[in-house]
């Protein structure tokens, strides 16, 4: 048996079974964690009753908006920054530092500026994701061969047309890498903000459940977030793989 995929499935299944056994045998007590099968049945029950559907829709919807903003703003600014060498050099230290800065510290200020609604949360999510998109898009733009840009000029393409039809398609595998990170960061931003200060959403429900020892709500919600982020990630990764294979890379 030499297939890595099969091994991966076996290992994952083994881990889940181990967790199940440990929970059922009482090595991990009920207050700490529910056995995996309970989490799954709780999740189905939760989705079926629809009690938390509003919270789920709010969080995922906001994360989606934050993701779209991060992508649009990120890719556009990367194209602009790429043309301005000085600006880019100046921003390099910021990019290197950015993900060590506790962005959530700006949340109170954003609430004052944008009100108590969804806007400050979306802002945090987009703010976290946008730099990953910029950095990866720049990386992709650096790798566009000069001869393709010359070809665009020979075809008398406008700068916008060149970006849309030559530069961005060429850089697309790298932009997708940024997109994968932006998915995670927009979720982190939204959920983190909901943990800190919010009156709804999955993050709020998770911390509410945690404070009330309500594992039957907390674990299914956490599982749902993990499932959503991993499946979106795998979808983008598959797309990325198709693009790379088409170009004879990897």
């Amino acid at each position: 048996m030499k297939s890595p995929v099969l091994w991966r499935i076996v290992i994952l299944a083994g881990l889940v079974i181990l967790l199940e056994v440990l929970c059922v045998a009482g090595v991990i007590d009920k207050l700490t964690m529910q056995p995996p099968h309970r989490i799954l049945t709780d999740l189905f029950a939760m989705l079926a009753t629809g009690a938390l559907n509003k919270a789920i829709a709010k969080t995922l919807g906001n994360a989606l908006i934050a993701f779209i903003i991060a992508m649009v703003v990120g890719v556009t600014s990367a194209i602009v920054i790429h043309r301005l060498r000085r600006v880019r050099d100046t921003l390099e230290p910021l990019f290197a530092t950015y993900y060590a800065i506790p962005v959530f510290a700006f949340y109170p200020m954003l609430i004052v500026l944008l009100g108590l609604g969804d806007a400050p949360q979306i802002f945090i999510g987009a703010m976290l994701g946008v730099v990953a998109v910029i950095v990866n898009t720049l990386n992709g733009l650096d790798r566009v061969p000069g001869v393709l840009l010359k070809t665009a000029r020979i075809n008398q393409m406008s700068p916008v047309d060149t970006a849309l039809r030559v530069t961005l398609p060429c850089a697309s595998p790298y932009i997708l890498t940024g997109a994968k990170l932006a998915v995670a960061y927009s979720l982190i931003g939204i959920i983190g903000a909901e943990f800190i200060m919010s009156s709804g959403g999955m993050g709020y429900e998770i911390s509410f459940a945690y404070n009330n020892f309500d594992n039957a709500t907390m674990y299914p919600l956490i599982l749902l977030i993990l499932l959503v982020s991993i499946s979106i990630n795998m979808m983008i990764a598959r797309w990325e793989k198709v693009l790379m294979a088409r170009r004879g890379l990897r």
Binding site: V147, K150, T151
Partner: peptide, 14 residues
């Protein structure tokens, strides 16, 4: 005017 360059200028995504 048409130009053909020495480097491969085919678009790999098309």
């Amino acid at each position: 005017v048409g130009v053909v360059f020495q480097e491969d200028a085919s678009f790999p995504w098309l």
